[in-house]
């Protein structure tokens, strides 16, 4: 409405800016965003700054409690485990294993899933119907069961876990992308573009994509937390990262036998993982709220 804009001095923020502003207004999500950034930072450079190697065994200091307890030692900030390995260093390495890998796996799934989803969303008829049935079938299998089966084919181990989680996440992205594309396709502005003679690819790239990118980012935040849970769960069940690995789930599973004597071994990795999951989920929530508020105002 250019001719009606009597208030030239007023600048209207763009949609992304608006969502970002809304997001920052919510202090909780903002703090959680900072925590996520911190975890990413630790995941990237953590292995270079950790005080000990995660596998270094200090046989003189076995099962040391965290340093704030009277029996603790300040050299081992969060205590040591049954083989004398520094828990703090192991947690830092675990960040890059559990969280770092989740980020990467979810991103891989995003790229593959969104491209497939775009193909499926834009296609019609028998091809899309076959694809849908396939997707429904895969989505109906509980994700952990699917991951477990894939691990059973490939054999246990962290590398195979990554493949399993990737394969589990892809259908979810495909499904999400397909739904949002279908929703957008129903709207009038797409019809308008089509009447103007835009090609399918042009519509996808210029009309649909900018409008669905936020839901995809949202799905990404969900996928990261799902990937973390799956990787850790497989590690916990002894099907993913093997015993002794600093992966958080594996650390928790190692702690079960010692839970009578060294409860910190069960509590510390749990808290770290909980904090990480909580911040990722809260950022996701904040994002969803920001988007919803923007579409309301």
């Amino acid at each position: 409405m250019p001719q009606n804009d009597i208030y030239n001095e007023v600048e209207y923020p763009g949609p992304y800016q608006q969502a970002w502003g809304k997001f920052k207004q919510n202090h909780v999500s903002w703090v959680c965003f900072c925590i996520v950034m911190f975890f990413i930072f630790v995941a990237v450079i953590g292995p270079f700054i950790s005080p000990y190697s995660p596998y270094h065994q200090d046989t003189g200091y076995v099962l040391l409690p965290p340093s704030w307890q009277s029996a603790g030692n300040v050299h081992f900030l969060l205590g040591t485990d049954d083989l004398g390995r520094d828990v703090f260093s192991r947690l830092i390495h675990g960040t890059s294993l559990t969280f770092g890998i989740s980020l990467l796996v979810a991103f891989g799934a995003l790229v593959i899933g969104v491209s497939l989803g775009a193909l499926a969303g834009m296609s019609k008829g028998i091809r899309s119907s076959i694809f849908n049935h396939l997707l429904d079938a895969i989505l109906s299998i509980p994700s952990l069961l699917l991951a477990v089966v894939i691990v059973a084919i490939l054999g246990p181990g962290l590398n195979n876990t990554i493949w399993a989680v990737l394969l589990v996440l892809i259908p979810q992205f495909v499904h999400r992308t397909q739904i949002v594309i279908r929703d957008e396709l129903k709207k009038e502005y797409i019809t308008a573009a089509r009447l103007d003679g835009a090609s399918e690819f042009h519509i996808l790239k210029n009309s649909i994509f900018p409008n669905i990118i936020e839901s995809i980012i949202l799905q990404y935040s969900l996928a990261v937390s799902a990937a973390m849970l799956d990787i850790a769960a497989l590690g916990f069940l002894g099907l993913g990262a093997q015993h002794g690995s600093p992966e958080w789930g594996a650390m928790l599973s190692d702690s079960i036998d010692l839970i009578y004597r060294a409860s910190w071994l069960a509590i510390l990795p749990g808290i770290t993982m909980f904090l990480c999951l909580l911040s990722v989920n809260t950022v996701g929530h904040g994002l969803r709220n920001a988007l919803k508020h923007r579409s309301e105002s």
């Binding site: 769960a233 079960i256 839970i259 749990g270 909980f274 909580l278 989920n281």
Partner: peptide, 18 residues
């Protein structure tokens, strides 16, 4: 609900046992 939603289930089990 959000906090509980973020606790990994295997940790919940361990905590309950603990």
């Amino acid at each position: 609900a959000t906090i509980l939603n973020s606790i990994p289930i295997f940790w919940v089990g361990l905590l309950f046992i603990l």
